[in-house]
Design a protein around this nucleic acid. Sequence first.
DNA 1: GTCGACATGTAACCAGTTACATGATTAA
DNA 2: TTAATCATGTAACTGGTTACATGTCGAC
Lengths: 184, 184
Amino acid sequence: VQTSRQQTTLSTTEYAVLGLLTSGSRSGYELHQRAASGIGYVWTAAKSQVYTVLPRLVAGGYATARVVRQQRLPDKQVYRITARGRRALVSWLEEPIEDPLNPRSTFLLKIFLGRLVRPGALVAHVESMRTALGETLSEYEDIEREIADDPDDYYGYLTLRWGLARVRASLVWADEVLAELERR
Amino acid sequence: VQTSRQQTTLSTTEYAVLGLLTSGSRSGYELHQRAASGIGYVWTAAKSQVYTVLPRLVAGGYATARVVRQQRLPDKQVYRITARGRRALVSWLEEPIEDPLNPRSTFLLKIFLGRLVRPGALVAHVESMRTALGETLSEYEDIEREIADDPDDYYGYLTLRWGLARVRASLVWADEVLAELERR
DNA sequence: GTCGACATGTAACCAGTTACATGATTAA
DNA sequence: TTAATCATGTAACTGGTTACATGTCGAC
């Protein structure tokens, strides 16, 4: 028996949707609503993306769909994550994060879904973030030394200070979280 | 005499390129190199975007191109911003920023190019950012009160604390910058 | 009778990334 | 001879946003 061709890698949106499905079966509509709260702070998806992604997850064997008939309200498709979907999600969550400082990086999504992974994987993610933040901080500090006293660079310096403030705040966060995770 | 159809609104990438051209005439290649430093911390563009955008700016009358012949090295097109380009850029820079907290918002770009606008416009941008940050902070603090003690939300709380740390750092930055700008 | 929630989707578009393509010069 | 820099572009693809399309029910 020949199985149909399946995707082997999923997009971040697909993993985010699988992540939502780990809290229970949901319809496309519900997933889109949920995307506004909770996970919405770390990952958003347009309605059209959700409806595009769900049939692909079913086709790949990562989820199953079941029609729920309703009176008064239109019928809906309710999606449930499969064991295969769970395995794919967990192994993706444990994979190292490349370019953690990229504003579209998956860092926060992977932390948010931290309950699904081995604690060591989470520590590794936060440590890689801390390393990246430390490198960025010293890079920014080098630039600061160059431009701080040059009035021509005043507006560049303002934006640099924005970056410095946020990198430093994130570093404090990373140190706190690492201490907390290691205490567990 | 009928002028050819011109774009009336430009994309953010086009404004960013115009912003780079205010520091002097540049070739596409140079613009792409510069995008790695300075403005690169607040706006990046792929090589292909730069080469796509430049002829459009010329077609719209926002820039002019001149061929510079070189021995040994290939000829290059050098672009210069026009008065029209400058006017369009400045009026865009002074326009209010919608959704300043959106990670792809133009806030930092407009601060970075602050030397081109009236000081009042800059103050308005930072004030609108401070307002948006204040609203986000109290929203996050509300959520914190709900989830801080619930162990089921532990990983959500970790990501919330990341957000809190960064919002608070940005608020401190905004207050400092406003005080500084008003002292001038 | 108009609006909002429920429910599912398609189509078009825009921005951004990566790969492809070419070709000279210079340094390791 | 291999890679890097200079220089300019095109093509394909991915991800994300907005608009379009349809239809019921309940509340105001």
